[in-house]
Design a protein around this nucleic acid. Structure first.
Length: 161
DNA sequence: AAGAAGATTCGCT
DNA sequence: GCGAATCTTCTTA
C-alpha cells in the first residue's frame, strides 16, 4: 500500500513540544539517528505516531506525518482502519499509522532504503503548501510548523490559515 | 511507588 | 461538543 503525504508537522531540536527536548532516553533514541529514519511511538493508549528524523546524528529532531492521501492498497487500509470511508483512512496521525499498520517494529527503520516502509519522491505537478500552527500541543504553540496541501480533502485539522 | 500528562480517536449526547 | 479509553514516560514523594 502507498499514499501521498499531504500534511506534516516539524518538531525541531530544542522545541519544548518535541520528544527530544529533555534529552536522549531509551524511548526516544531513534529520534537522534541520522536523517531519514522512522521514529514511532505510542500515545494516549490508543494511537501510534510516525515521524521521520530530520537532522544530523545526535541532534534529535523529527517531522510528524499527520495525513496521507491513500493511493495503493486501499482495500487493505479499509480493513486495518475498520472503515470504508476513503477520506477517513489516514486523515490524522493515529489513523495514518493504523492504515499503514505502523507499530514499534518500524521504529528505527531506514526510510530511504528498500524495506517494509520507505519514502519515495513522485514526479508531480506543483502543489500549494500552506503553514499554520501545530495541532494538539501545549508548548511553543505559536510557531508555524504545520504544513499541508491546500485544498486536499485528506488533510486533518483546520485547513485554513 | 503512585500520579499526571500526552504530537489522539471514537462514540454518544 | 465532550468525555472515556488506555499505555508509556516523566515527575514527585
Amino acid at each position: 500500500m502507498s499514499g501521498r503525504i499531504v500534511e506534516t508537522e516539524a518538531y525541531p531540536s530544542g522545541d519544548r513540544s518535541g520528544h527530544a527536548y529533555r534529552g536522549r532516553t531509551v524511548s526516544n533514541q531513534t529520534l537522534f539517528m541520522d536523517k531519514g529514519f522512522a521514529y514511532v511511538y505510542f500515545i494516549y493508549g490508543t494511537s501510534y505516531m510516525l515521524n521521520v528524523t530530520a537532522e544530523e546524528p545526535g541532534v534529535g529532531a523529527g517531522v510528524l506525518l499527520r495525513a496521507i492521501e491513500p493511493l495503493e492498497g486501499i482495500n487493505l487500509m479499509e480493513r486495518l482502519r475498520k472503515t470504508d470511508e476513503l477520506r477517513d483512512l489516514a486523515r490524522g496521525p493515529g489513523r495514518l499509522a493504523a492504515a499503514l499498520q505502523i507499530d514499534k517494529r518500524l521504529d528505527g527503520v531506514d526510510l530511504c532504503a528498500d524495506g517494509l516502509l520507505w519514502l519515495g519522491s513522485a514526479v508531480r505537478e506543483t502543489a500549494y503548501i500552506r503553514k499554520t500552527v501545530r495541532v494538539g500541543i501545549s508548548h511553543e504553540v505559536g510557531r508555524l510548523l504545520r504544513f499541508f496541501e491546500v485544498g486536499s480533502p485528506f488533510v486533518s485539522a483546520p485547513s485554513t490559515g
